[in-house]
Design a binder for these strands. Structure first.
Length: 712
RNA sequence: GGACCCGUGGUGUAGCGGCCCAACAUGCCAGCCUGUCACGCUGGAGAUCGCCGGUUCGAAUCCGGUCGGGUCCGCCA
């Protein structure tokens, strides 16, 4: 069917273009279908397939040389205009592509008159005959470049002010705040358009894979109850019950577990999550997770499914990008830290951490004086680690560059950074050579496998500091030295996280991940305290050695997601919660709903959550999730387009029984002064004060978008 | 909460004590042009240099503050 334009100028144009061009009024188009007898089937196919409407028969990405000779009507934005006097070329753009429209004064004086006053970003519709371009006039840069539309008729559907930045130049650098202010124009540009289309493909591929695997897609509420979790909640005051609030979910964690109790077996959701924390390139206050949960599974089951799903999704969405390794490497937490200094390692390159203690003779005589270098000896004597990484080709680094690295290491928490540079002749040089002696220096170089022209960087500190600092340096240097192939997708798993970390300040064990995470079966007996009283945890408790059935998935050094097999037995859950410092009463207060549910027959279950924004960003080769979000917020949480947040209408306050009293600092000081400080165990009344937020355990799976990003 | 970077016609940059009532590119406006595709040519308009204060004979330029944007640390696990 082909639409026909009926009537033309019927109504004057209300919005004169600001540049004041003189022109005749443009008619609001009134179109009619020329096929009165559309069947249901044609209506459906028309609606689903064609995108054909009275305004257009084809999109701007459709026409090919083979269409030459037929009639077509296109609608879109004027991308560019090339005016040759009696001949005007219009590049007409929609999200599908660009098609050249030729307007010839001799063929259609009316259309030419319209084309003369058309400007970039005007919305127009053009009808005419599709023509094969003259030989030699094809444009190979365009998919439609062998054809063109010879306009017989041209109508302006909307005029446009001159846009604040170039829409027709995909490479033009534009200040991000301007892009955000006019995001709808930014999205018209090719890069943003392509990324949003990629993201749409990503989500579709995810849905396909899940539905095929028998998952049920279920939505969970956005207005829920505040739970004492890792991040600060956004809260929404209730009008019907003044003085109370809803919280926005940091993730659907508890709800998805309840769906398992409900027997839904395999659940997933593309879920919006909210966390009121400071923003980063990889963190927005609202972000999207792929949230899933499965019943009757073990760690392997979940990891295997997610891995297969991730492989399929990657190959569907970015078929040109190679997966570094299939199946994905799986590291224990311990191994990941040992080899990469990170629980989300970028495994696109080596540069692994090397234990240098043996090379220093530490195995022969541990303790003071063993290495000849006081700093190293002290570290070894106190149970610390001496490890290093080799930066290839940095042996000739200047003093300044090395100082910068040392400064970076200190910023990351190291006390210092020892370096050994190997010159082109293979001779090692170091400021600590006089302490270690030539022999030890050489054995360090050998142990680290540093070659001529390399730089060996050494950190000696507590085990976790050594790993963390070297892990971050490894990441920084990998980036700087271009060791990571930007085209490759390197997924990997990290599992067997410790169950708890000791929280000295609050005298309790802190779940490293999720308070519901299960313990590996053989470590179940470890979930006890040294004192015997489950409510008196101490750093010496066996619980500190317990390992969790928890797994994270990383992609190119970003944490993509994390999850666990949960504790589904109430008795074990209570033991775990007691270690985490929750009294029976407080536990009931905070997790009453889910605990009660567990009394009604909870299946063994586990799941994971993956950050969709991060995934989309990585697949789009972006380092910032704002680039894959249609309408993101600035680092101060502002929406520059809608100007949010904004002060509410006083009437809205009144209706909610609220009043703004100002001055956050004063309020907080007063609040703390009222001794609202968390008591140790058994304080089941008061919430954690603001200052102590974050010491609480992690709310849920993955983090995904709300965790530290490319930086760890 | 802390550190650092940026803010100059619409956009991107240059200028970093007087040579600047600010330069270049592009965009914009007008005119010309029948095969261009970042069309071309000619002419024109457009910024008191984010804002406030200070130093100075003199400030886009130096200093302080403030606002906005970004990056990192903390935070978010």
């Amino acid at each position: 069917m082909r639409p026909v334009a009926a009537g033309s100028a019927s109504r004057g144009c209300e919005h004169a273009r600001d540049r004041g061009a003189e022109h005749a009024p443009i008619g609001a188009s009134a179109f009619v279908y020329d096929c009165p007898a559309m069947t249901d089937a044609t209506v459906l196919s028309h609606a689903l397939d064609d995108l054909a409407t009275p305004y257009r028969t084809d999109t701007c990405g459709d026409l090919r040389a083979g269409d030459a000779g037929r009639e077509a009507r296109l609608a879109g934005w004027v991308h560019r205009r090339r005016d040759h006097g009696h001949l005007i070329f219009l590049d007409l753009r929609d999200r599908h592509g660009i098609t050249q429209v030729v307007v010839d004064a001799h063929e259609s004086p009316e259309a030419h008159a319209v084309a003369s006053r058309v400007r970039p970003e005007f919305v127009v519709t053009a009808a005419g005959v599709v023509a094969r371009r003259l030989p030699g006039m094809e444009n190979p840069a365009l998919a439609t470049g062998e054809s063109e539309l010879r306009a017989r008729e041209l109508q302006v559907l909307s005029e446009a002010k001159t846009p604040p930045f170039y829409i027709n130049d995909p490479d033009a650098p534009i200040d991000e705040s301007v892009r955000l202010r006019y995001r709808y124009l930014d999205i018209r540009r090719e890069p943003m358009r392509d990324r949003l289309l990629l993201r749409s493909n990503l989500v579709r591929a995810i849905r396909d894979a899940h539905h095929r695997a028998g998952f049920v897609e279920i939505e969970t509420p956005i207005l829920i109850k505040s739970t004492p979790e890792g991040a600060r909640d956004f809260i929404v005051p209730s009008r019907l019950q003044p003085g109370t609030v809803y919280a926005l979910p940091q993730s659907p964690q508890q709800l998805k577990q309840l769906l398992m109790v409900a027997g839904m077996d395999r659940y997933f959701q593309i879920a919006r999550c909210f966390r009121d924390e400071d923003l980063r390139g990889d963190r927005q206050p609202e972000f999207t997770q792929l949230d899933l949960e499965m019943s009757f599974v073990r760690e392997q089951t979940v990891m295997d499914f997610v891995e297969a799903m991730a492989i399929e999704v990657s190959r569907t969405v970015v078929p040109d990008r190679p997966l570094q390794s299939v199946p994905f490497p799986r590291f224990t937490y311990e191994e990941a830290l040992e080899r990469f200094g990170s629980d989300k390692p970028d495994v696109r390159f080596g540069m692994e951490l090397v234990d240098l203690a043996p090379a220093l003779g530490a195995d022969r005589a541990a303790g003071a004086g063993a290495t000849g270098f006081r700093v190293f000896d002290d570290v070894l004597a106190s149970g610390g680690r001496i490890k290093g990484i080799v930066a290839p080709g940095l042996g000739g680094a200047t003093r300044r560059e090395i100082d910068d690295l040392a400064e970076t290491a200190r910023r990351y928490g190291a006390k210092g950074l020892v370096h050994v540079s190997v010159d082109e002749d293979g001779v090692a040089h170091s400021s600590v050579a006089k302490f270690l002696g030539e022999e030890r220096l050489r054995s360090l170089v050998v142990a680290a496998a540093a070659g001529p022209g390399d730089l060996l960087l050494i950190v000696a500190d507590r085990p976790e500091v050594t790993a963390d600092v070297l892990g971050r340096l490894r990441r920084d240097l990998g980036e700087r030295l271009g060791l990571a192939d930007p085209n490759v997708l390197a997924y990997c798993w990290v599992f067997r996280f410790p169950m708890y970390q000791w929280d000295a300040e609050n005298v309790r064990w802190d779940a490293t991940h999720n308070p519901f995470s299960g313990v590996v079966p053989e470590d179940e007996p470890l979930l006890v305290t040294a004192s015997g009283d489950p409510y008196r945890p101490s750093p010496e408790d066996p619980a500190g050695r317990a390992r969790a059935m928890q797994y994270d998935i990383a992609l190119n050094g970003w944490e993509l997601g994390g999850g666990s097999v949960r504790i589904h037995r109430r008795e074990l859950l209570e033991r775990s919660f007691a270690l985490q410092g929750y009294s029976a009463e407080r536990m009931h207060d905070l997790f009453g709903g889910i605990l009660e549910a567990f009394d009604f027959g909870a299946p063994p279950h586990g799941g994971i959550a993956l950050g969709i924004d991060r995934w989309a960003a990585l697949l789009s080769r972006q380092t910032n999730i704002r680039e894959v979000m249609a309408f993101p917020k600035t680092s101060s949480g502002a929406d520059l387009m809608l100007d949010a947040p904004a002060a509410p209408d006083p009437a809205q306050y009144a209706e909610l029984g609220l009043r703004f009293v100002g001055d956050r600092e004063e309020m907080q000081a007063a609040w703390v002064a009222e001794s609202h400080v968390p008591g140790p165990i058994g304080d089941d009344v008061l919430p954690t004060p603001v200052e102590d937020r974050g010491k609480e355990s992690r709310p849920d799976d993955g983090p995904a978008t709300h965790t530290s990003g490319p930086a760890s």
